[in-house]
Write a protein that binds this DNA or RNA. Structure first.
Lengths: 222, 222
DNA sequence: TTAAATTTTTAGACAAGACTAAAAATAAAT
DNA sequence: ATTTATTTTTAGTCTTGTCTAAAAATTTAA
């Protein structure tokens, strides 16, 4: 039975991360054990493996610290977890209090791509149902003001700050609609069944934006 | 590490089911091993456990048969698998040929309720992306007379009763192959790796049908 | 109906994860 | 600064799933 290192210590990594946002402070074995409801002995074992794989810095009796690589991995797990939570709540109608356990299981599915598609399908949510930030695919916790137009809500006002596609046809198309960097507008409507939106650029006629276009226009809320 | 009996022998159960549609014929250990790509020894072990749990009837050297309970369990697994496949294709935009492996992972998630909600979210699909029937929550394979050609098995005889696509190009194409409502034929072969099939229309030459075409021709078994 | 071939099972080994109990290291307290 | 308490690790077991190689049963052929 082969078990991916990635998932073996998943719980440890996530627990670690949480306690370690304030970097530099090693987490004690006991705390970790407590957090993931396992025996301290098990945690020691796991950590020794993670240490060999260079996901944590560990010296016996001295506590554990995430390495850069470990942090990246932990972030991926958190991302997966939170996106699945979003899915369960938004699409399947679960209550935010009942999704943790399920998300924990779903998170075991090994596929970066799946998670990215899920994110897109969910329209790039920035927060999970508990209000926690969802890191983007590069691992950054969206401190960016920038987000796809498709993730905006009705009555939001936004300013175009960039595009995801640099293809000239796409840019020309935007030009035809008078959409360019710096333009400000407001979301009037959003159609659930396909995600297209109606927006109004200050002082012009309302325009309909297709979901594909909306996904590729980066805006910041204003 | 606790592992649910339900998932332990999942592969065996599903493999078993497939071979056992024509009930009563025991499946050989070797066939099973082949199907799930494991050693015969492993399969024997698994089967012994499933036998104790009363999911299969097994006597050494005599092959394996699903019990009623085992059939129910297998059906549940098939249901899960196919619904997840639908989700991946319809909602996340995967190709029908790339979803098997992912669905296999998703299917490990233990929650009846989740599957039921997923089914509802997907609007109660009747066939998975490969055209296979999805059992309903009571375990019944919906006995609709109409089904996609792709869901038929070797040696089945069928009559064309409709099409899923009404695009004129598609219909013309069917015409060229002498396929029209009322035509009767027999399935000669089915190729696992892409799902294409060879059929023979009564009194003509055998024809090869691509999986995409097969999915969009509705037939009834005769 | 034996002998040969094939299938299936058993026996024994390994790896991974998890646990308990006991030992070792560190931290706290008198 | 020792002793006591706490934390952490080690050692040793268990369980589950998997495999290979060898033995046993069944099938097929001569």
């Amino acid at each position: 039975m082969k078990a991916h290192a990635d998932q073996v210590g998943g719980k440890v990594l996530k627990g670690d991360l949480q306690d370690l946002t304030k970097k530099g402070i090693p987490v004690s074995t006991n705390d970790l054990a407590e957090e993931i409801s396992a025996s301290a002995a098990s945690v020691t074992d796991m950590i020794k493996k993670l240490n060999e794989k260079k996901y944590v810095d560990y010296q016996r009796y001295q506590g554990t610290l995430l390495t850069l690589e470990g942090g990246r991995l932990a972030t991926k797990l958190v991302r997966r977890h939170r996106l699945w939570e979003c899915f369960l709540v938004e699409k399947l109608g679960y209550g935010w209090e009942e999704v943790h356990e399920l998300a924990e299981q779903l998170e075991h599915v090994q596929s970066e791509d799946l998670v990215d598609r899920l994110e897109e399908f969910l329209d790039f949510p920035r927060f999970d149902p508990h209000g926690d930030l969802i890191p983007d695919r590069t691992g950054r916790f969206t401190l960016r003001t920038q987000q796809p137009l498709s993730s905006m809500s009705i009555d939001d006002r936004a300013e175009v700050v960039g595009v995801a596609i640099h293809d000239s046809q796409f840019l020309k198309f935007l030009g035809d609609m008078n959409i360019e960097i710096g333009i400000q507008f407001k979301i009037l409507e959003k159609f659930d069944y396909d995600g297209s939106m109606r927006i109004v650029i200050d002082g012009s006629q309302p325009t309909l934006i297709s979901p594909v276009i909306a996904k590729n226009i980066h805006v910041k809320k204003i």
